[in-house]
Design a protein around this nucleic acid. Structure first.
Length: 259
DNA sequence: ATGTCCAATTTTATTGGA
């Protein structure tokens, strides 16, 4: 099973880029972030015509997450538990039913800039809630993964110019420590389990020719609990599509799972 | 500090978010 995460930066603007990539990469499951659409306006037929089940958790203008799956989805949950007053659509999870069940969680973690400030506080409190959900997935002992745009640069090797991100909410010590606290529960960063070394990025800013200079950062991650990590076969970044027409500023990251 | 892009409203121009 091939499972991918992709921050598309707006479904309306990314219909062609997304369908082209789906047709080529043929993921069984795609976790999408920043659909920037309410559920009613999401062009679900485009994906249903390609054999995908579609589950969305959208909102007007910003954020929004979705799951596309060629296998049946069960027990869909929308919204990250822990704060009933949080109205930002950043979390969706479901069970993918294959020969073995896999719980998949799609997330769009808050950017957090400017830091310090209320947006940074929201990022850290959201990560505290994520920690609690992650602990439950660890205790379940069933294969589970959390994938999406974490808006976290884990290490210096995950940025072309780490010094430029030193004060940024994506790289500040508090952000990275909150990320490590979750990983340290026992999750595997699927990409780093398969590929080592610098120069591997999943986001390049639209500005200042970042793509042409390969001035990127790795902020889209798949975290696997131990039962899911047992099934990991490969993990790659489809960086090439960043150079196409009307690209998202992110590219897909996918894992092949023996399931 | 920003050379870009996206969505929505203030709508053929501006603003917020990233």
């Amino acid at each position: 099973m091939k499972i991918a995460t992709f921050n598309i930066n707006g479904i309306k603007a990314r219909v062609n880029a997304l369908t082209d990539w789906l047709d080529e990469a043929q993921p069984d499951v795609a976790l999408l972030q920043e659909i920037k659409s309410v559920d009613e306006n999401f062009p679900r037929e485009l994906f249903e015509d390609r054999g995908y089940s579609v589950e969305t958790h959208g909102q007007k203008s910003f954020n929004g997450v979705a799951i596309l799956s060629k296998l049946p989805l069960e027990d869909v949950q929308r919204g990250l538990p822990g704060d009933e007053t949080d109205e930002q659509a950043r979390w969706i999870e479901a069970t993918v039913v294959g020969k073995q069940a896999l719980r998949v969680c799609g997330l769009y973690l808050p950017n957090g800039n400017p830091a310090p400030g209320p947006k940074f506080d929201y990022k850290l409190s959201w990560m505290e809630r994520l920690y609690h959900r992650a602990r439950e997935l660890m205790q379940s002992e069933e294969p589970a993964l959390m994938a999406g745009d974490y808006n976290i640069i884990p290490q210096e090797e995950d940025a072309k110019r780490p010094e430029a991100w030193r004060e940024d909410a994506l790289f500040r010590p508090e952000s990275r420590a909150a990320f490590r606290r979750i990983v340290n529960l026992g999750f595997t960063d699927a990409f780093r389990a398969r590929v080592q070394g610098p120069g591997h990025y999943s986001f390049w800013d639209y500005q200042a020719g970042a793509w042409n200079r390969n001035d990127g950062i790795r902020i889209d991650h798949l975290l696997l609990n131990p039962q899911a990590a047992d099934l990991l076969v490969d993990c790659r970044i489809d960086s090439e599509i960043r150079g196409r027409e009307k690209p998202s500023d992110h590219v897909p990251v996918w894992a092949e799972m023996d399931i």
